[in-house]
Write a protein that binds this DNA or RNA. Structure first.
Length: 477
RNA sequence: UCCUUCUUAGCUCAGCUGGUUAGAGCACAUGACUGUUAAUCAUGGGGUCCCUGGUUCGAGCCCAGGAGAGGGAGCCA
């Protein structure tokens, strides 16, 4: 008999038809009622066992975590809490779960504990919801770009370029690390390494993406990215997924429009497709908020926050305007910032970003036209000679979720900026070729996928929105 | 990497001024009950008090060093 998914069964009406379901036992109450889950939804199917006619040895094996198959008639439920239930005529134990050793209990566990058993945390309501939402968001991103005619390009994971300036890199080698070959100067001789040169894991697909955009016009990458930074925060991972579109013949405004449209598109899809999961997460968050003191509680629920971001345009201001707002704020005048804003040119700290987003505008903010000194070499210089056509999108609770820019398409300007940043031109001659042959204005951005998942699920630690987090001193599984 | 808080049963946590045999709830086991919703009730088993060293007649508690975790900062997506 074909296996039906619990999500579909719960939506159907009690047909009294005999069906088979397979899943894992969440709880077994009263020797009669199995809450069965198969991961298709957070809601469980109630399977009713007639314990007077079921073998004692089978009943004993219906334990939390066990995989079972149940066959029986789908009936209207006699109890409250569900409309249909399965009256089991036969129960088969597919995989036992020793109740004494199984770490998950039918109770609330801390996220820290579940992080230690990440291989089992998929089986909880919270992580079930989080990873179903993550799946929807990933698919929606592809759908969005596909509908817009963007080409999905696979940029390399192993790269020989170490000039992207996006952070510390993980080295890739097949040398015997205890005894690597040396050259005449006693330096490690990478000519003898697998690729015949020094190689690393990518920190960004942007530069390669730009190459493709110079032929296909509109492209995007969506893949894993690696940073060997010693970052211990709730917003950083050593291995994360990034979406990086790149568009030829586009300027900074086009870039902002696309980013905003994309974020709203995927949030809308998630709210539609994973309504129940997001409602669950929203409720979970509200209960967690009740533990906090009144003044630390957020004004909006997760659902309200998402809907608000869907319905309202993001605020767009320049760096210079932001500095003005911050400098004139009471917060600054009363010296409540740890880093006080005094002069133009300083980099914004997260306390300043949070103030703009959470206190001043109370909505997502796009900051543009930063001083060139605090931004990357490839960003296009504005006519004022001081700023570059950069944009960061700041989200409440997350901070920077998108970082992008219009790229410097003028060869001489780019070469000057590279020289100023100490990047040798021969390292990136392939990149400079795009400016030598048919250069054109173009723009793009990077979106940290896990930060998006954080925002949409309302989770607060990035390690809880990726199945197997990699961070300093942690690489389990 | 810096600041800060924490580490006691499978989980979440109490543990007084340093004092004798370290507790609770949940989980688990056994039994009762049998239309339950994290069922309920009764009984029971379960401890390297993170590690190492020190102070003390005596350390879960005090001191030093180390490890791990949480939160914040920096770097960023």
């Amino acid at each position: 008999m074909a296996r039906l998914r619990i999500k579909d069964i719960l939506k159907s009406s009690p047909t009294e038809q005999v069906i088979t379901v397979k899943g894992w036992v969440r709880t077994f109450r009263n020797n009669s009622f199995i809450a069965l889950n198969d991961g298709s939804t957070n809601n469980n199917l109630q399977v009713v066992v007639d314990f007077t006619n079921t073998d004692e040895s089978i009943l004993k094996r219906i334990t939390t975590g066990a995989a079972i198959s149940a066959t029986g008639a789908l009936l209207a439920s006699l109890g409250k809490g569900q409309t249909v239930e399965l009256k089991a005529s036969s129960i088969e134990i597919i995989g036992d779960s020793d109740a004494e050793k199984y770490p998950l209990q039918p109770k609330k566990h801390s996220l820290e504990f579940l992080r230690e058993i990440a291989h089992l945390r998929f089986r909880t309501n919270t992580f079930g919801a989080v990873f179903r939402v993550r799946n929807t968001l990933a698919f929606a991103i592809h759908q969005f770009f596909n509908e817009k005619g963007f080409l999905y390009i696979h940029t390399p994971i192993i790269t020989s370029s170490d000039a992207e300036g996006a952070g510390e890199m993980f080295r890739v080698t097949n040398f015997d690390i205890a005894n690597p070959p040396k050259d005449e100067q006693g330096q490690i001789d990478y000519k003898q390494d697998f690729f015949g040169k020094s190689t690393n894991l990518t920190v960004s697909g942007q530069l390669e993406g730009e190459l493709a955009a110079m032929a296909f016009s509109d492209i995007y990458t969506f893949g894993p990215t690696f940073r060997a930074e010693n970052s211990n925060t709730t917003r950083h991972l050593a291995e994360f997924w990034m979406i990086e579109p790149e568009m030829a013949f586009n300027d900074l405004t086009d870039n902002m429009n696309l980013a905003e449209e994309m974020l709203q598109y995927v949030m809308k899809v998630a709210l539609e497709k994973n309504k129940e999961d997001i409602e669950f997460l929203s409720q979970r968050l509200e209960e967690e908020e009740k533990q906090k003191p009144q003044n630390e509680r957020s004004e909006l629920s997760l659902l309200d926050k998402l809907n608000f971001c869907l319905e309202n345009k993001f605020e767009r201001i320049t760096y210079t305007q932001a500095i003005e707002i911050l400098r004139e704020s009471n917060h600054n005048k009363k010296k409540k910032f740890q880093y006080l804003i005094d002069k133009w040119g300083v980099d914004l700290q997260s306390e300043h970003e949070r103030y703009l987003v959470e206190k001043h505008f109370k909505k997502p903010v796009i900051l543009t036209d930063y001083p060139k000194e605090i931004k990357s070499f490839y960003m296009r210089q504005n006519d004022d000679g001081k700023t570059v056509a950069a944009m960061d999108i700041l989200f409440p609770g997350i901070g920077e979720i998108v970082g992008g820019s219009q790229r410097e398409e003028r060869l001489e300007h780019l070469e000057t900026r590279m020289a100023e940043n100490g990047i040798p031109a021969e390292e990136l001659s392939w990149y400079l070729d795009t400016r030598r042959f048919g250069s054109c204005p173009h723009a793009g951005f990077g979106l940290g996928f896990e930060r998006l998942v954080l925002f949409v699920t309302g989770m607060t630690n990035i390690r809880d929105v990726i199945p197997f987090p990699r961070s300093p001193k942690n690489c389990e599984f």
